[in-house]
Design a protein around this nucleic acid. Structure first.
Lengths: 340, 340
DNA sequence: TGTTAACACGAAACCGTTATAGTTTGTCTA
DNA sequence: TAGACAAACTATAACGGTTTCGTGTTAACA
């Protein structure tokens, strides 16, 4: 590795002190104009860039932020990354992306390493499934105790006090289900996740409330709770074949598209026989045939907001204040799968 | 920000020197066993972790690598990130993900900042479209000149000498098209990108060769070249409606699924009337109805291989040697869209 | 009893910057 | 012509580690 040019190199070459070089480059009035110009010209010529590692050490901040997400092959998190990266870069921050792969252990290791190692100034995190199941948030609380800012995104918990960015899951699904009802659906199935996942739980509540408000009865046999992503086909197929349904609300992309496939394979038409609506606006729903209506959570926007909250904390010296939770509005994207 | 505990703190507390603490924690035989144990116990108690920034400064290496990709809302790059992250983490490296958003300028800025700022030890990059169009690779050549290892992935150029990881695009599409021909297709359309994109060009070549080898004539009116992602619907629709085709080979997910939609909307059945095959194995194809056959490029594997090549360079002190290009085999995933 | 080597530890330099506190000059003033 | 003061630099001490080179103590040996 060829060594990069340093202040010392410039100083030696121009026969001035390191301080002079440093100050010249920062346009300090302490240094005479001619010296200043000379140094700057030389630096530009040799393409000098200050060593950020040294600066980090000096300033005790790295200008790096960590983004910890459960998985990446999911359009929602993809969008989040995009949003985070965009704003962070604008503000001169780098983003270190870490995948927990839905594993508690990996989440803990990632956070501990980055936090104690002093590699990042703050965290944006979306909890892994395992973490939510265990309800063990000590690693996060410790981060907070260290005085490192932490922003939780989408998959959050009230057991950690920090800034949060979420969508109004309950209202989003309320709207989705209401939409189905307005389209004439009477027997609407819900395909959701197990309850310990915050968003799954809230979306289920929205479904229940929408039915109630529109005078429809809640039929538990129309609700399927799915744990993993892996084996979702079977229960969905069973639901579609055994229940007489005319609408489906699925809490994520995959469930929605899988349900549509099951419906079509079962010889029914979407949306004529069964209307379908999903949650999260990825490519999967957009490019399905027919295109699937959905509740958009605006992942990019969420990412952008999360960074902004984080940077605000990083840039204000006064600690504490109170924490806030930003709720990003969802919007209903009506496509072919839920009627005209 | 509460200050993290340092060697100095431990030293003061235990009334030994900083060196003693440092050596104890590294299990140096220079230090007596009891002192060593005492220090280690104390460090463990206070959860001491060395400051990686300081270590980076001292060692002149950061244990960070940069991964620069054109976009993220694309399953292929999502998989690549996964693979890179996995191996990198195993080896104690962090991954800084940067998006060029297909922009030359952003690619250059990202690379310059990270390279000169000394934030990373090496790069893995997939070129932006704009970069390939302009054929300006000076930013990459400069990285190389600095002695920083660079691995190019998927979208590469021969104009930069470095390690590369690619798939055999030509062979992959040759196989795909041959498969269609074996299924009885005679008039196979090609939906591809403009030629300056290395992979688009190669995939087109594979198509042409497959036709030739099977005695089919090349009909230029069956080839559609699409520039952006945005307006791909129209030309595809036109192709489907105006040409009498019985097969489609699309060089990416989106084109494939858009073509399928056009075919179905045009009143034809997939695969009975028109067989379809795509490239890259994302969710879009897997969960379409019918599921679309494709050429898998094994993105995760490519990511893994790329990091390994990078780390090998980083860990060997001897420079130069020769560069190698690893070709990852594609595999044909036969699904419903191309017949039984 | 003096020499020496092993042992256990400390001092100091260094990585590249920045910030603070000097130190030279030269000029102007009283 | 000494004294004050500004201008233009330089020296130094951090930041938090690692590492090389001492150094003082003790024990073994001739």
């Amino acid at each position: 590795m060829k060594r990069k040019i340093t202040l010392k190199d410039i100083a030696k070459e121009l026969e001035v002190s390191i301080s002079t070089v440093s100050k010249s480059l920062k346009d300090s009035p302490e240094i005479g104009e001619d010296t200043r110009e000379k140094v700057k010209a030389f630096a530009a010529l040799y393409n000098y860039k200050p060593n950020n590692i040294a600066i980090s050490l000096k300033n005790r901040r790295t200008k790096n932020i960590a983004l910890i997400i459960p998985e990446i092959v999911n359009d929602f998190f993809g969008e989040v990354i995009g949003g985070v990266e965009q704003v962070a870069n604008e503000k001169g921050y780098n983003v270190i992306v870490c995948l927990s792969n839905e594993s508690f252990d990996k989440e803990v290791v990632n956070i501990d390493t980055l936090a104690h190692g002093g590699q990042v100034d703050g965290f944006i995190i979306s909890l892994s499934k395992e973490t939510m199941l265990r309800q063990d948030y000590n690693h996060l609380i410790e981060v907070e105790n260290q005085g490192m800012p932490l922003v939780m995104l989408d998959r959050v918990t009230e057991q950690v006090l920090c800034d949060k960015v979420i969508v109004d899951d309950a209202r989003g699904s309320y709207n989705a289900v209401s939409h189905l009802i307005e389209q004439g659906c009477k027997k609407i199935a819900l395909i959701t996740t197990v309850d310990y996942i915050s968003v799954g739980h809230l979306r289920t509540q929205g479904y229940i409330k929408a039915l109630g408000d529109h005078g429809l009865e809640l039929d538990p046999s129309l609700i399927v709770r799915i744990d993993g992503i892996a084996g979702c086909e079977d229960p969905i197929k069973k639901l579609v074949e055994n229940q007489d349904i005319d609408g489906v609300f699925a809490v994520n992309e995959l469930f929605a598209v899988t349900a549509m496939k099951a419906v079509q394979n079962h010889g029914k038409k979407v949306p004529q026989d069964v209307a379908i609506i999903g949650f999260s606006d990825g490519k999967l729903l957009k490019h399905a045939t027919p295109a699937v209506s959905t509740v958009s959570q605006h992942g990019e926007e969420m990412g952008r907001v999360a960074v902004k909250m984080l940077l605000k904390r990083l840039q204000s010296d006064k600690e504490e204040e109170s924490f806030s939770t930003r709720v990003i509005k969802t919007s209903l994207i009506k496509r072919e799968s839920s009627g005209s």
